[in-house]
Design a protein around this nucleic acid. Structure first.
Lengths: 217, 217
DNA sequence: TCCCGCTTGTGAAAACGTTCACCTGCCCGC
DNA sequence: GCGGGCAGGTGAACGTTTTCACAAGCGGGA
């Protein structure tokens, strides 16, 4: 995308997120150590992949023993930048915005929605989560947000992106099904449900009529 | 994932979705022909990539002219399996479920939500979109749905996935932030906002303190 | 103390995806 | 009907990501 430094592959980072989640789980279960093989078994990747991914960032394991759950968890936390809090500006107080605010996981992971904007008069002034929805016109005055979330209809997405950039965010998560243009240095991530549906549609129509293979075959 | 045939790369399919979207746009604008270069300019990929992607499925262009918008649109539509309607069962009538039902785009693309299930007594019986929310216990009786959408809390996700598979869906779109196990032959796609946030967090903390580069530098 | 089984870390190889470069074909103008 | 410019199709080159395979290190037991 627009990452200024691209030393690590996107896939590696995504897997790191997975490992982190698995570690949270086994940590809650009270497990002390975990092997790359076990970390991998909980995902659809190989143990070699796990070790390679982790090796990009350091040597966290002990030969013969595996990884200390608590320790690795802390390390990945730091790598992913989750050892601090992030200020997030949300634009669009519709269903998706509401879903975001309702999900405790975001706050728990360190993401604070510090401002919500919308253009609809019916929504402006209402309280969502624990912040008051402001007029989108006030977005330029928004200060201190490092990330922006675009949860608006498609037609508004590019304009909102421009406004967020002007307001100083360095990263944008876009839920609108359209590619956005952002300046160099701004990181953009897209969550596109439409594309996932189309991907499903493709695979399913490829296999249409074929008998479903049984597991293990 | 669990695709029985994996002849085409996931990236190619995702880009096909993009091309389709661009084609819809330029079609609406009344444009007749489009070159691979122009198709690419609207995205962040090269014209060679466009041509390569399309060449996997056939020769749709004309040398010296480019691609006929209407024709290519129809072809990609067929490739992606969007030339038919898909029956979708939605589990979870919360914010995400509501977002899905509210988005006209899904219906327009050929996805019909034929049933909605939830476990909460307050939601059961209410009308969402144009279907009545049913008790999750009725899911096993659901027939004819080819795709399932999991828009439930994390803890219920795996159980719901099993139920959907038992009900005969061949593809699942999972919004819960957890990897699910599905039998061979069932296609699984995940939409994981948490992971995207963590990816943003990673990149932003990598570049923290660095002066933002201006566009064009 | 030494051996053995286990698991990491990592170069090397293989697989995969993207980009390049060029040939081919098409339209248009003359 | 002929030539020039444009643009698609495609094998080959390139770069990246994944997998393989094994040396190195650790703990435990005799």
């Amino acid at each position: 995308m627009t990452d200024p430094m691209k030393r690590f592959s996107e896939s590696t980072i995504r897997r790191l997120s997975h490992y982190y989640r698995v570690l949270e789980e086994v940590h809650a279960e009270g497990q002390r150590m975990i092997s790359s093989h076990l970390l991998a078994e909980r995902e659809d990747i190989t143990s070699a992949q796990v070790r390679k991914d982790l090796s990009y960032f350091g040597s966290f394991g002990r030969r013969g023993l595996g990884y200390n759950v608590e320790h690795l968890r802390t390390e990945i936390r730091a790598i992913l930048g989750l050892d601090r809090r992030w200020r997030v500006a949300l634009v669009g107080a519709g269903h998706i915005g509401a879903a975001l605010l309702a999900y405790r996981g975001f706050r728990d992971q360190g993401f604070d929605v510090v401002a919500v904007f919308d253009s609809s008069p019916e929504r402006i002034g209402k309280t969502l989560g624990d912040v008051v929805v402001q007029d989108i016109a006030k977005l330029p005055e928004c200060e201190g947000a490092e990330m922006g979330v675009i949860a608006t209809p498609v037609r508004a997405a590019q304009e909102v992106a421009d406004m967020l950039v002007a307001a100083g965010v360095r990263g944008i998560l876009n839920f609108a099904p359209r590619k956005l243009r952002v300046p160099e240095g701004i990181t953009l991530r897209n969550v596109d449900m439409t594309m996932e549906f189309e991907s499903l549609s493709f695979v399913l129509s490829q296999t249409r009529g074929k008998p479903r293979r049984r597991a293990g075959e």
